[in-house]
Design a protein around this nucleic acid. Structure first.
Lengths: 355, 355
DNA sequence: TTGTACGCGTTATCAC
DNA sequence: GTGATAACGCGTACAA
């Protein structure tokens, strides 16, 4: 009986290693290492280096980052914490981060925390176990002590989309105050005077800075900020926008415009207004924030403040790479300018006094 | 002068290793390894194992996956290739994958290929260099030889959202034919007879299977499939939907319903119809496919076929884990059922003959 | 300029 | 049942 010739384990493509290259190039593995690493290439003879490079090329050598990481204690990997990739805000941010990191041979590890501090800790621990070299997080709350711990442990951290009050961490965010000013000035120019603001949680920089921006812009327009016209939701969701708008309608029906904390909250306002028999923009004008995808497709198309999300992600990655290279120096906070996008949800204030 | 006591490099938290645990537990590092690894725990004395576990716990020991990977040649990492996370189709799929992989201590590495075969190769190579244990890809075209190469090299591959014609690779997809049947039967029930189909590329399973489903359902309804009423776009985008719909309108204006290849293409139809002075659903009914986020917010709200994207991602991850454990056996193709969601873009066919 | 030797943290394979 | 040892692939002092 003739036994079939076994081929060993299925994994045919056993990787080519430094040693293989050395053998082909006729040098010592250490020399190959030096020749292939940009920083140490100067230490090796030009011709030798070229021979090594050719050998590596012809063999299709790819350094094994696992082995390298074990030695250098770096993984060329970056942890990215976001609340939920399913929230339309984050895909462009993540895309910006990934594109920029990829150029620098870093790989992002993305985790969704669902804004659950406990889950955040778990994800963070898992990433540290995987030896990530640094973090980008979009989940910053005002209690960010654990982030400072990371920094103290030598791991650079950059905040994206949100910042922290005390400026203790580098961040890339939209210019929330500018954005709110653009929103307010727009509806003021349309003749609105009684303007409401239904925003997000104050513990998030995006919540409180937009609130500040709203208040400042109203003041500058010579308009009062009335408590009854200002609400703060527990989350940046359509559901919370809906709840807040219903509360507002129950308390006061004299307002003619709402500046929402973000586009999702604006959507909730659409719903509450519709239920109350009010039409947007005929009865009430609404402005969103973010200009998330499909905001132009809503009914009515949403007037909103455009935030350059991709660019925010890209710059956050840049800032992180900068701090991986040199983490000294004070943390920078980069604010990217926003832009008002006028669509169908805003219109001149109804004439004939209050509605 | 009293010199400050230096603390060494900034990185305070030097990781605790297997050896540290061994020292505390009073055993050899190898024993610690055995005690901590579930599969080898049986080899070690119960009491010893417990002592080791306690020591590990008290020291806060976290195994270093880099070192482990170097030894075991596995990274507990999975490559996920998608066209673009910015396409609303993919976030829920990716989320499903991530959630399921996380439970099994695997980490996804996701890359965006932009449907560019060249970029796909680059990403794939980068992931192989990072020693990923397996792949999930949503980028399958009909030329998938290189995917079979991966399989031959011992790397399990699972397709998500798309399949391949010949069934040579495991896949988790929506039941595209069922979905199209649901769409067609809905408009037929509304009295439509001249029904168009503007679909995606035929090289993608999502394109040709939906086309097949459309043709089959029309046949079963006793309706002809006319060439002039069927279009195939180069991509699944609003832009292509718009282009196709314009071409359709130029060639024939007798149709009263369009079954689009997906929701984005349906959106393009909205635009083309609007430009032509036709209203949806009064003049033309439109059905989408996917029920992507915010489809209910469009104007009009889109009647569409709901696809369980999160579940598709989750099951793809399950299937992959299954094949990582045992890659023998024929590739399974799991088709998840779809569901019709009726909204405002479909209405009874206009009476009085053709429009 | 290049080679030698060692170690990163873990696990597989021996021996005891 | 446990300890000793080698090895995974690479980078880097140090020697030559």
């Amino acid at each position: 009986m003739i036994a079939p010739v076994g081929n060993g384990p299925a994994r045919t493509a056993t990787a080519v290693t430094l040693r293989d290259v050395a053998r082909v190039a006729g040098v010592h593995p250490a020399t190959v290492s030096r020749a292939l690493n940009a920083e140490t290439r100067a230490l090796v003879n030009r011709e030798t280096a070229e021979r090594v490079l050719r050998a590596a090329e012809s063999l299709g050598y790819r350094p094994n980052p696992i082995a390298r990481g074990l030695k250098t204690n770096r993984s060329y990997t970056v942890g990215v914490l976001i609340p939920d990739i399913t929230n339309p805000l984050f895909p462009p941010i993540v895309r910006g981060i990934e594109d920029r990191l990829e150029e620098s041979a870093y790989t992002p590890l993305v985790a969704n925390t669902d804004n659950d501090p406990e889950r955040e800790q778990v994800d963070l621990a898992a990433m540290r176990a995987r030896q990530v070299d640094a973090f980008i997080t979009a989940t910053a709350r005002d209690d960010h002590a654990f982030l400072l711990d990371l920094v103290a442990a030598g791991l650079p951290v950059v905040l994206v989309n949100r910042g922290v009050q005390d400026g203790s961490l580098p961040a890339v965010t939209p210019d929330d105050r500018l954005g709110m000013r653009q929103a307010v000035e727009h509806v003021v120019a349309l003749g609105h005077r009684r303007i409401a603001h239904l925003g997000g949680p104050h513990e998030l920089s995006t919540g409180h800075r937009r609130h500040e921006g709203f208040a400042a812009a109203m003041r500058d327009a010579g308009l009062p900020v009335q408590d009854v016209l200002v609400g703060s939701g527990r989350r940046f969701t359509a559901q919370e926008g809906y709840r807040l708008c219903r509360e507002l309608l129950a308390a006061d029906r004299s307002f003619t415009a709402i500046v929402a904390g973000n586009d999702l909250m604006a959507l909730g306002c659409y719903d509450a207004l519709g239920e109350a028999g009010l039409r947007c923009p005929r009865d009430v004008s609404i402005v969103g924030f973010n200009d998330m995808r499909f905001a132009d497709r809503f009914n009515p198309p949403l007037t909103t403040v455009r935030v350059p999300h991709y660019e925010i992600g890209a710059q956050a990655a840049d800032l992180l790479l900068e701090r991986i290279a040199d983490s000294s120096g004070p943390p920078r906070h980069i604010e990217l300018p926003t832009e008002l996008v006028i669509r169908g949800s805003t219109a001149p204030a109804p004439t004939g006094g209050e509605r």
